[in-house]
Design a protein around this nucleic acid. Sequence first.
DNA 1: AGCACGCCGACT
DNA 2: GTCGGCGTGCTC
Length: 657
Amino acid sequence: MIADVVLPIPVGKYFSYTVPVEIAPYVSLWSRVRVPFRQRDATGIVTAIREGDGTGLKAILEPLEFFPLVDPELAALADWASSFYLTPKGLVMKYALPPLRDIERYLVVETTGEGPSAAGSALLNKTIKRLGRLRLVQLFRQGSISLRDDITHRKFTAAHPMAGPSGDNQTERTVFIDSVGHRLERYITLIGKHIDDNGNILFLLPDHYAAGAYFTEKMKAIYGDRVLWFSSGVPVKQRMETYFRARQEGGYIILGNKNSVFLPVHNLSLIIAERYDDDEYRNEESFKFNAIRTAIERARSGGIPIVLGGAACCANIIWHARENGIAIQCNDWMAGSNFTNTIKTVGSRSPGELLDRLCTDIIETVHRGDNTAVYVPRKEYGSYLKCYVCRGPLACTKCGGHFDYDRDKDTLHCTACDAERPYMDACPNCGSNMIGFARIGASFVYDHLSRTAPGLNVTLITGDSLKEELPALRKKGPHRTQCLVGTRALSKLYGYHVDKLILADWEELRKMSGFRSEEKTHQIIANLIDALTPDEIVCYSRSRKSADLVPYLKTTAFYENELRKRKEADFPPFTRIFLVEARAKTQGAADRALAKVKTVLSDNDLDPFLFGTIPHNKPPFHSWKTVLKGPKDLLDSAFTDLYNIAGVEIEADSPNF
DNA sequence: AGCACGCCGACT
DNA sequence: GTCGGCGTGCTC
């Protein structure tokens, strides 16, 4: 007997091993096995079992599982994900399954038979050491021992995955675009319906600490200890409790972020995905997938109701929903809100003027006793310094590159040649002191405010500072007048009401590169408004003629327009984009890897789908990204060959290129 | 990925 | 004259 095994390595093929007769009964499809690989052992997953004598093959060393932990539903989802995201199955499985040692750490062995050893229980790991794993697996299969987990105290047996209580699945398959208050109401109604039938609800959230904390609090207030978390943000024991309960019990709300889309859930009767447009649902490490797209597939293949909730639209998902018979409910919540009538735009001639007007406004607002949040598209201090006499960026005297300002060292730093010189209030070329930042960043606004109005209670919110600031913001409560300055991380402050939302230089968002820049602009603005529920919005513009914010607030019209443009240009979702990256430590090696990629693409007649090749050199590596545009199965035939080139990785549906 | 084999620079 | 850098190839 031969078993085909996939390993957690970025290689597109499987490896075959012979299966010794004594372990054959315990090796099944999708079970984990220990195999010799090179000089060492590796954990692999059996993806096929077939007949044959297997001369020249190595043998499987031992079965690792008492029964396969992967049920057919999870297996099918992993298969789908592997081919949809062009990731080797071994890497998908490594991501989808909890490490065996996390599971076994909490298992105890119980003797059930009348055998020679007296009834009792012992930690699984110790018993494995004493008797050997194979022996235990044999005893388990013949019924002499059983396993129990030490957290829920339930028997650990092969779960019987079942579809949840069949409700009115069709009407509950919805993309629901509305404010957070309405989404919460909707979620609660749905959860109530399913939980009463002992169904489990999988509730996907973009993170654990912000959106996660908000919804945990809301859910716990109603359902108490029926609320579980499964994600990398919680301690192992808590995560494993969720794992053990989810696979056997019912009536739980299982909250988690992107990895929980692969969690085996007994009686799964509803999937909710909050802020389905959030970038955090995209995994960027090794297995590059989108948890929302994967959740849609899980719901589709299992006939499970799914509700995708958010404040903004996402063209890709909207289109997908239409194709799959998922309803879209968008009531244009922003267009009808109070603040729409109060949107005010203040133009300026320079970043300096913008900053002055902005600060004056903030100080007045805070003194009036109103909460304010200032959104700035960039987090850095300011992106480059400009001389208004030379009419261009401050130029490096050595190489002519752009100078930017290093806040910590108080120096000018050349972005091209790394030269540094002490900061002076003058242009190095013409000596004029008419210099300033060509763009402003959140830190710059924050520092400027702290300096000009020392008494003001200002907090800087960026992706880095959010986690630290959150507890303090919660504690202070809504009564303390505050001013927040921050980047898009501000949109994570669910339920933090501000009276005035200031958008500083928001038009900068529209200059983002990539075909999704308009959509991202809409999403950032919508999510800011969703979290901060402003009564009033003021836009500060860097130029005199400023763009109109309103089209970004009319959600339905926005996505219809966006879809129309995408179709005309033949861009996603009407086609797929694949990035084939060839990476190496030296330029020469990267070039050679690229040449191999091109050969494989050419051999598979993919040249007509080539969109271009772009260099992507981030310091320790040199890399080339080859972009292909085409149907969803475009790379199926080239997949294995591409992954057999060292340093090659494929990313499907990349939102930025 | 991770590890071994293989060919070009600074050391006792 | 060697040690060791990383580029290349291969893993049942």
